[in-house]
Design a protein around this nucleic acid. Sequence first.
DNA 1: GCACTAGATGCGTGACACGCAAGTTGTGTA
DNA 2: TACACAACTTGCGTGTCACGCATCTAGTGC
Lengths: 205, 205
Amino acid sequence: MNDDVMDLRARNKQSTREAISHAALRLAIEQGPHGLALVRVHDIATAAGVSPRTYNNYFSSRAEAICAFQADQAGRAGQALRSRPADEPLDQAVIAAMIELYTDPEPDRAGLRMIMSTPELEGEALKAFSMAEGPLAEAIAARTGTDPARDLFPAVTAAAIAGAIRVAGRHWLEPGTTGSFATVLRGALSCVVPAAPPQAPSPTR
Amino acid sequence: MNDDVMDLRARNKQSTREAISHAALRLAIEQGPHGLALVRVHDIATAAGVSPRTYNNYFSSRAEAICAFQADQAGRAGQALRSRPADEPLDQAVIAAMIELYTDPEPDRAGLRMIMSTPELEGEALKAFSMAEGPLAEAIAARTGTDPARDLFPAVTAAAIAGAIRVAGRHWLEPGTTGSFATVLRGALSCVVPAAPPQAPSPTR
DNA sequence: GCACTAGATGCGTGACACGCAAGTTGTGTA
DNA sequence: TACACAACTTGCGTGTCACGCATCTAGTGC
């Protein structure tokens, strides 16, 4: 996709981006879901070692900065699915790919709880998860030999996968839930991902 | 749910809310997806016949006001599913209920395009669609006799349904798509909603 | 008819996103 | 190595916004 060897510029850019989003998430966690308003842009920028103006060059809202990690991770979903062997059934490939992507390492409970149970972050969190949908749909279409422009199956399945991951996360955060995130995720995904697309493609036009 | 007879206060409140959200959506459509920033709070309030301060008593952001109709509609999804006969298979009930909810009347293309293809509105639009999930999950659990606290099936399916509706909307807006929204919606939903929950409930703990 | 309460409005404040222009640091070339 | 160019950072100024608070208005119930 892109060179393993990035420019110094690109690497600096990447690392300040990570510094900002990491600082934003850390400060948000410190204040908790009810004190989000207390996390000022100035604090995030200072904690990341940049000026407030630079923070705004990278993110146009606090929510975006806080959820950047989730968004980046979701953006890798398509690639994760493509890396599975082509002869694997769709459901098994999806489950294996998503478990690898989302449990290596096991998610940080505090961070996940922050972005998933803070009303002000809800929209941005949904946006982050939905970033997986486009690439996922393409990967599904490629794997199943369906034409995404004519058949809704890839896009719908991608949306269902993103939704299942979200639901799994929410459930995993509930008090009393034992078991690894991988187990929960497998259970959620197996509810909605078929082994193969339906024979009669859904008509679209 | 609530009395058919609302008091005058409640009716006024409801109509003010609708006036504001309607004005917000109308002005947004006038400016188009690329001119959203030109829609000022003051304009919305004036168009709705209230003061800017009152606008803020109802909505805490322009996006929220613009997407209020979608959010309200999504909030009725659970009720729509419950109104289907109890002996109908899950998939047929869901499809019938969602088609009734979302095609009576046929959606307004301009409005739907506005909220679904404007980046600044994306988060709020996703939030609006996701408002269907909670009630839908409860209705699904009730219909299938599953315990939502122990089985992920209802919540995952609800999320998949919301996602399918979203994808159907996006597809229906694409140029070159003929056919009613009902047709597209049926095709999308039939990709992910099973006739019955899987025999072995997904383990959750 | 009257006291009470929910909602509407005006004002003031703190924060934020972003355009602009200047300064700083990395890159490719002679 | 030196230099010209491009990318990135920063400070400043501006317009907008969300919201707390106090006040006024209109609907409700006795």
